[in-house]
Amino acid sequence: MKLSSIVAIYLLFWWGCLFLVLPFRLRSSAEPEALVPGQAESAPPRFSVWRTVLWTTIVSLVVFGLFYVNYLNGWITADFFDLTRFRDA
């Protein structure tokens, strides 16, 4: 696999994992903390972008690592998803 393909696939995994990581450690404003004027009651009081980026990077590295090891060893291939093999002949 070329380096450009590795980078492109990793970036796809990173963006996909971002949406999985976003709800981690979110707390609503219903917890005891002062609301900022104009803040919606459902908005989180503190959101750490860098913590989210760090967790997204860690999760995406693990998921991409599993993908790459599968790519090298061929554990799950496209033939695994061939549903026509189950048709009656």
Rank of each mutant, 00 (worst) to 15 (best):
A89V: 01
D88E: 13
N73E: 12
P23S: 06
T57N: 07
P44C: 04
W14T: 01
R87N: 07
A30W: 10
T77D: 11
A43H: 09
G16N: 11
F67I: 02
A78V: 02
S5N: 12
E31L: 12
S29Q: 09
G74Y: 09
V49K: 11
T84E: 10
T77P: 07
K2S: 15
V63K: 01
R27Y: 12
G16E: 09
I76F: 06
F64V: 00
Y71F: 13
L3R: 02
F80A: 00
D79Y: 06
A8Q: 03
R87S: 01
M1Q: 06
N73H: 01
V36L: 14
S28G: 11
S29D: 07
N73S: 11
S60C: 04
L12K: 06
V62D: 07
A8W: 14
A34G: 02
F13E: 05
F47M: 04
N73M: 10
F24C: 04
I6A: 07
S48D: 15
L22D: 00
N73A: 10
F47L: 09
M1E: 09
V36D: 02
A89D: 11
A34E: 15
L66Q: 10
S5H: 13
F86C: 00
V53F: 15
T56E: 10
L83R: 08
W75V: 01
